[in-house]
Amino acid sequence: MLTLIIRAILIYLLVLLVFRLMGKRQIGQMQPFELVLTLIIADLATIPMPESSIPTLNGIVPLITLVVVHFFLTFFSKRSNKISQIVSGHPIVIINPDGVDYQALGQLDITVEDVFEAIRGQGYFKLEEVQYAIMETNGVVNVLPKSAFSPATVSDLHLSTQENTIPYIIISEVKL
């Protein structure tokens, strides 16, 4: 039993390290290859945990191999648009000034209802309010509203303001 406890702690710490190495985006919104990696890591990590006869290395080695693969995929994706498009795809405009692009919807295999659900999530309930809607490579839909329906900003109102600063925490957990 002690062996299992030590293995579980070891593998948990390793998975934590792996996610730290891969960056914050893994915890936030993921590209498809990052999602695949996250799913596989979860599975790989649990293989040697309950089974004492399986060496811990059988879980560790594939895990760190995937970290290396992920690193190279990210590395080459950053340096080559072509590779980035192959790995992650490219953003697709689903609503343009002419309206809903049904060809794009067919390409993405989504329905108009899905599009409206996505733009409602952004706070726009009418198609007339949207100039462009773009489905990003991670599946998120971002909306550019028409000028008339954009939220007013301080510069629109020609008001003078002070620049914002980051607030500093002076006392935390009863410590200065």
């Binding site: 190495l21 290395l57 080695v61 760190i64 191999t65 970290v67 290396v68 690193f71």
Partner: peptide, 17 residues
Amino acid sequence: KRYIYIIIIISILIAIC
């Protein structure tokens, strides 16, 4: 730093093999 970690990891993998 990330490059250094990756080089270390690759070295470990090669050493294990």
